[in-house]
C-alpha cells in the first residue's frame, strides 16, 4: 500500500511536469488501462511461465537491479504499463514490456506480488 501511494505521488508529479492537456488524456487512458488489468483474473500458470523471462535479470533478493519479488501488485502493474507506454524509461524494460498485453501484465503482477 505504501509503495502504491508513493507511486501515485510520483505519477502525480510527472503529470504536473507535462503539458496539462496531454497529461490529462494520458492519465485518463492509463487509469482506464490499469482498471481493465485489475479486473482480469490472473492466469497463475501463465504468470509462472512469463516470470522466467524476468528472473534472468531480477534476483530473488534484488541488488543492482530492482527487486520485483514480493512487491505490491498495483505498483508492478503501474511499472510495466509505464515502460510499455513510455512514461517510464529504460531500454531493456521498454523492449520487454513492449510486447506484454493486459493479460500478461495481470499474470506477472499477480505472480511477483505473491512470491517471496
Amino acid at each position: 500500500m505504501i509503495a502504491t501511494a508513493i507511486h501515485r505521488a510520483a505519477l502525480a508529479a510527472l503529470c504536473l511536469a507535462a503539458p496539462p492537456a496531454t497529461a490529462f488524456s494520458e492519465t485518463s487512458d492509463a487509469d482506464q488501462r490499469r482498471e481493465a488489468i485489475l479486473a482480469l483474473t490472473p492466469d497463475a500458470e501463465y504468470g509462472a511461465y512469463l516470470s522466467s523471462e524476468c528472473t534472468a535479470c531480477h534476483a530473488e533478493e534484488g541488488g543492482d537491479i530492482p527487486l520485483i519479488h514480493g512487491q505490491d501488485r498495483e505498483a508492478l502493474i503501474d511499472a510495466l504499463l509505464g515502460y510499455k507506454t513510455g512514461t517510464r524509461s529504460h531500454d531493456v524494460m521498454e523492449t520487454i514490456a513492449g510486447r506484454l498485453g493486459d493479460e500478461e501484465i495481470a499474470a506477472l503482477a499477480a505472480y511477483f506480488s505473491e512470491v517471496n
Partner: peptide, 17 residues
C-alpha cells in the same frame, strides 16, 4: 514461503491458447 502455483490451476483464464 513460496508461491504454490499448483493451487491456482483452477483459476486459469481461457485467454491463452
Amino acid at each position: 514461503m513460496r508461491f504454490n502455483r499448483r493451487g491456482f490451476i483452477g483459476a486459469a483464464s481461457a485467454g491463452i491458447g
